Amino acid sequence: PQPSYASISRGSGIRLFAAFPVKFEKRLWGVVYMSRTPNNILKHLYAFRDRAFLVALVVLAITLLIGWVTTRTLRGPIRALSQQAQGVAATKGGTLEPLAHYGTSELAALGQSFIDMADALEKRSTYIRDFATHVSHEFKTPLTSIRGSAELLSEHLEDMKPEERARFLGNIQKDTSRLKALVDRLLELAKSDNVVPLFDDTVDLIPALKHIAGSYSEVQVEGDQATARISEESLGMIASNLIENALGAGATKIILTIVETTKDCKIVFKDNGSGISPGNRAKIYDAFFTTKREAGGTGLGLGIVRSLVEAHGGEISLLETAEGAAFQVRLPSA
């Protein structure tokens, strides 16, 4: 039935009914039937307003406490990270030290990212600074020689003997050739440092290396048929640099051995040249390090090779060998 007028006055619009059977000796004698409309929710809350107010105060206090703790936990590390970043920007370099505490694992990961970024920037800055110093030195020597020879020729050209004139002109040509070789190598190095490998770049090693070896009578290729994730152009630069290095060391026989595993392809460049002394093994990848400067060496070849190999997800290593030198180039399999 519809609620009575009194129930509607409560503002509930509903009525609750309850029926209780009256039994005696397993016989139903009657039913107690009761009904009531529930109290209005607002009136009910008003009746318990003191408790409701207390609960609201407790909830507000807990919320404010949580907010204060969260702010204290996050604001300090974030401010410290911001100051460290501003310090790196102001000094244009430098490394960062880990904070005493980060508050959360997410801020710890962010802080470690800042440290790694600062270390990478510092290493890059040091590399560029040292590289610029080496480049200026390498260019200064032949330029000074060219300038000295040109000044002598201009001042004493008429009085100079033909053989002396030819010697100074030869010096100019030699130093000019060295400058050209340096420029060419620097362009190759810049290209290798900015290689963007494509995942669909693959090359069959046996035919590609045999094609390169065709230009050298001292080179032979052997081993397994394998396909590597690298462009043919990059593979050609790697192989040519390593072969030229071996020939520069007096090698008369260079063997390229290919071995394929489940994950990668390995190419071993083995020669019978003069090899690499133990004292120079740690410096062979340094820019402009060469033991054959008089023969036109630039000291950039192995740096170019390493940059190209690492850009394609591989690595290069110098192996122990009883004779000559042996470099192993590892590249991802296709």
Rank of each mutant, 00 (worst) to 15 (best):
Y5S: 11
F17D: 08
F20L: 11
K26M: 07
W29M: 05
N39H: 03
N40H: 12
L42N: 12
H44V: 10
L57N: 14
A61S: 12
T73V: 00
G76L: 14
T95L: 09
E106Y: 06
D116A: 10
D116M: 00
A118E: 06
D119A: 07
L121H: 10
E122G: 08
Y127C: 07
F131A: 01
K140L: 03
K140D: 01
G148L: 10
A150F: 11
E158W: 00
P162E: 04
R167T: 15
R167E: 15
D175N: 15
D184N: 07
L189W: 02
D193E: 14
D200V: 03
H211M: 05
I212L: 06
I212D: 05
A213L: 00
A228L: 01
A228W: 05
A239Q: 01
S240F: 03
L242Y: 03
N245A: 10
L247Y: 00
G250Y: 04
I254A: 06
I267D: 00
N272Q: 06
T290K: 06
T291H: 07
K292C: 01
G297Q: 06
G303W: 00
I304Y: 02
S307N: 08
L308E: 07
E310Q: 11
G313H: 13
E320H: 11
E323Y: 10
E323V: 14
A334E: 02
